[in-house]
Design a protein around this nucleic acid. Structure first.
Lengths: 164, 164
DNA sequence: TATTGTTATACTCTATAACTATA
DNA sequence: TATAGTTATAGAGTATAACAATA
């Protein structure tokens, strides 16, 4: 168990990390705010799902999820098909357009981080990813990921660049 | 230099960490939003300063800083004295009331984190703090901290608990 | 003319509550 | 009656731009 002062320091780091998030947010396409990006990312990683499940993964209220989804759907990035098993629900699915948008997001984010973290080793970045993943998990975040989330590099999607 | 896929993964972790920040935000006193808390924290850590300097440290526009400061000042947590050297400026200073508020914030944050991160070792928390600090620094964050920020435990303020 | 700070306005993200449709 | 999802409303955080006072 860590000390109190360390927890306070961690709390401040979490608060201050907002600056980095804002920098990342600034490079997003004008019509794709962070909320939409998160929706696309989770649909890509976890596959088709219903609103409720997506809200869980996003860790926000379903009303918020509904707005983000509506935004993405309006731009053709995702489709909402009626759930045959429950007519109250809708199944969300990433479209080819959504996948393309995701590629663009990945490209921009990776580019900015590669630039800013040029002097970081592969291992250091991996360490940070691992600790942040665990931090989220420790906060009752069952939304972390499906299987194999510790090795994102192993995943093979359009987001995995062909080469460096 | 890390791989592209790793940067994309890091970007997603940064996006998802918002859930943890929201949890921390929920335990704040009703009249002390995160913006005010950040102001108090920085004044405590860096000492008296002007608006411009605080805006730099917060990494937000000065208009935003002005609002947060006004909120804190209205509650007596900080004082704005005229700068004798430049009549356009105001010197911000933490009041005893602000210090007390900061103690309460520290107490609540530490308590929540201690609860959630009960199975983390002192070293793991330290690692995360170190990597997050460096991440902010890599993003041109000269606002990181003054001296000794790698050893927050060594600082002796009211925020450093007397014991565990 | 440039800079410090404040205020007005607008946009994003979030939560709560009221509502519809279905289970 | 309970649940899935939507919409209305409100609050916090942020940025841009217009403005005031001073340098």
């Amino acid at each position: 168990m860590a000390e109190q002062a360390q927890f306070w320091e961690l709390a401040r780091q979490l608060s201050a990390i907002g600056a980095v998030k804002r920098d990342l947010g600034r490079i997003l396409p004008a019509d794709c705010p962070a909320g939409s990006a998160a929706v696309l990312t989770l649909l890509d990683r976890h596959g088709d799902m219903r609103m409720g499940r997506l809200a869980e993964l996003l860790a926000v209220d379903m009303s918020v999820t509904s707005r983000h989804v509506a935004h993405a759907a309006a731009r053709g990035w995702i489709e909402r098909s009626p759930d045959p098993a429950d007519k109250r629900s809708r199944i969300l699915r990433l479209t080819p357009g959504g996948l393309a948008q995701l590629d663009e997001l990945s490209r921009r984010s990776s580019h900015l981080l590669a630039e800013r973290l040029a002097d970081w080793s592969d291992d250091e970045v991996g360490q940070l990813i691992r600790l942040m993943t665990r931090l989220r998990a420790s906060f009752g975040d069952c939304r972390s990921a499906p299987a194999g989330f510790h090795d994102p590099v192993l995943r093979e999607t359009t987001r995995t660049p062909a080469s460096t």
